[in-house]
Design a protein around this nucleic acid. Structure first.
Lengths: 240, 240
DNA sequence: TGTTGACTCTCACGTTACGTCATACTCTAT
DNA sequence: ATAGAGTATGACGTAACGTGAGAGTCAACA
């Protein structure tokens, strides 16, 4: 297929395909004598992957890293993507709920706190927060909160599924740096691709093994996953 | 509230608030002697609106136009936003379905056409398409398709609700240019903020009154809405 | 066979929505 | 009165393309 066919099929612009070629994200399998780009079916599958990751907010650079990673597995990636989309749908649902409440409050049927009015945008309200405050002190938690998004119960549920798929991705190549990259990517996604302090990131890893509540949740998808994640997160944060 | 408080509450960066101030999108109601920005509750409500519109893909310039419009009504805007979010959730659901099918086909349980593999991204498959081809000829339809997104039945359903809210927004100020701007904004949203040719846009308006199937659907939310929309779309396209 | 119209290519500069310093002022707390 | 956290204003950087400009390519039709 040539550029315009692909563009019409997928909804992206020709310029975008050129751009993806330029940055090496999607290089067409074939090129004609005249220099025309010709995309294979394999290319289309890759494009599908790219568009999914793009939809959930990954920057192109990260997408490239992911696809280039030797431990990358298409099938498992699709499963991971599925969970991400479900998580994003959850977020939308939270936003819809927030709007419904806002509508009620605008009609004077109820009142809302400022925090409530932004639920769905900042994931405020972490069920583990109070526990964390007791355990590590307020400063540590506040510092972490500055950079790390918090989750509600529903989000937690989705995270569990994502954990399980990460465990699957890990199965192929347990200690590989690529797995760490995948975790970092996933983490960045959950944080809406925001930046976060590396200490906080590593600290979160510590939390996974220090708090048995977390450990249980995580390990139910693979014995020792919590420890692995902590190590991976630590290694990743130190590598920066 | 000062910048950082607002930033922490809403999840946006301080820089973003500065930026919104710079471009006049969200100017704090108060400023201290020292020049510190102080945001009122009213400012927060506006910010909520901004973030909602941003979430569904509106460019900041359009958001500003909308908010500045004298006929802008907060309550109805929230209702419109709700419908947009629901529409986006629908899109996510389509994407999830697509992934599920992709997973099956990857496992060799079924085969997919290339079109199917990109459903949810390009909204391909318009139930009215064949009718349109018969009525206006292929070139016209193809031309329109180049710039205008197509919808499935589910999307059509959501569009109906959006129409109804547009009718409400229109109620306050029927012939105003702002209503036309609102329609254009809404239309751009449905097209994923893509560009479109003005002739195609105006042509679509013609379709609304020419095809009684469309007319019925639209007018059920207000007598004459289809005609109004056609005129608005025509006027808008000519104004460019 | 010549020509048209749709498609394609490669520069290359423009745009949006901020990120990221740099430098300097302000405010609260010890 | 001095540190530390917060804030302000430039001003340049970045990501993911958009938008022409100028030129080559290809199938179809006269």
């Amino acid at each position: 297929m040539k550029v315009k066919e692909v563009a019409d099929l997928t909804g992206v612009s020709v310029r975008t395909l050129h751009h993806y070629d330029e940055i090496g994200l999607l290089v067409p399998d074939n090129v004609t004598e005249a220099g025309y780009r010709v995309y294979s079916d394999e290319n289309l599958t890759t494009l599908q992957q790219i568009l999914f990751f793009r939809e959930v907010g990954f920057p192109l650079k990260k997408i490239k890293e992911l696809l280039d990673s030797p431990s990358f597995n298409r099938l498992e990636a699709f499963e991971l993507q599925r969970d991400m989309l479900v998580a994003k749908r959850r977020q939308l649902e939270t936003m819809i709920e927030t709007i419904d409440k806002t509508l009620q409050s605008e009609r004077g049927e109820m009142t809302m706190t400022n925090e409530e009015r932004f639920k769905g945008f900042d994931f405020s309200s972490n069920p583990y927060e109070q526990e964390a405050r007791d355990r590590w002190g307020d400063e540590a938690v506040d510092k972490a909160n500055q950079n790390v998004s918090k989750f509600g119960e529903k989000e937690q549920e989705e995270m569990n599924r994502i954990y399980s798929n990460l465990a699957a991705l890990r199965g192929t190549d347990p200690a590989a740096a690529e797995a760490q990259a995948a975790i970092s990517d996933w983490y960045m996604f959950l944080n809406k691709i925001g930046d976060y302090s590396m200490e906080a990131f590593a600290g979160l890893g510590e939390m996974y093994v220090a708090d048995e509540r977390f450990t249980k949740n995580i390990d139910q998808f693979g014995e020792g996953l919590a420890v692995f994640m902590r190590d991976a997160m630590k290694a990743y944060s130190e590598s920066k």
